[in-house]
């Protein structure tokens, strides 16, 4: 599993020097139980199951602040996406379904919000 995450993300977690810049930059910190630097560490040490159980994989905003500011170009956001994909690609693990959408709509909501949610949260 660890290898799968590394392969599809293209991230080498060994590049991390554990400075905490990603976690310092993360705007979604309060919404996640594991924070970007922990993602990197847990992928390196093989704690993938815990990450897959974590709700934080759906709250990452994909804002790329961690990617931009990481001094070692580790790209934590790619790991988070890889873990999320590992979950979604299992059977019946879609985080969002078409049935959920109706109640979330409002008249001003741009199409982009729905498209992106489907792209991020289901397979």
């Amino acid at each position: 599993m660890m290898e799968t995450i590394r392969r599809i993300s293209g991230v080498n977690p060994r590049k991390c020097m554990k400075c905490g810049k990603c976690t310092a930059s993360c705007p979604a910190y309060d919404e996640m139980e594991f924070h970007p630097h922990q993602f990197v560490d847990m992928v390196e040490t093989g704690r993938i199951e815990e990450l897959m159980q974590s709700k934080g994989i759906y709250t990452c905003l994909s804002c790329f602040a961690c990617v931009e500011r990481c001094p070692r170009s580790v790209e934590p956001a790619k790991l988070i996406e890889a873990v999320r994909l590992a979950v979604l690609r299992q059977q019946n693990e879609n985080h969002l379904t078409a049935n959920d959408i109706a109640e979330k709509l409002d008249p001003e909501l741009p199409q982009q919000a729905i498209t992106s949610a489907f792209r991020k949260y289901r397979k």
């Binding site: 554990k18 400075c19 905490g20 810049k21 990603c22 976690t23 310092a24 930059s25 993360c26 910190y29 309060d30 924070h35 630097h37 602040a65 500011r69």
Partner: peptide, 25 residues
């Protein structure tokens, strides 16, 4: 830990940083 963002506002510098040993932002 590291400082991720500094926001100058209302005469202060709002510093957002990580505390890795304390486990907080």
């Amino acid at each position: 830990g590291m400082v991720g963002k500094v926001v100058p506002q209302d005469g202060k510098l709002k510093v957002q940083a990580s505390d890795l040993l304390g486990g907080s932002q």
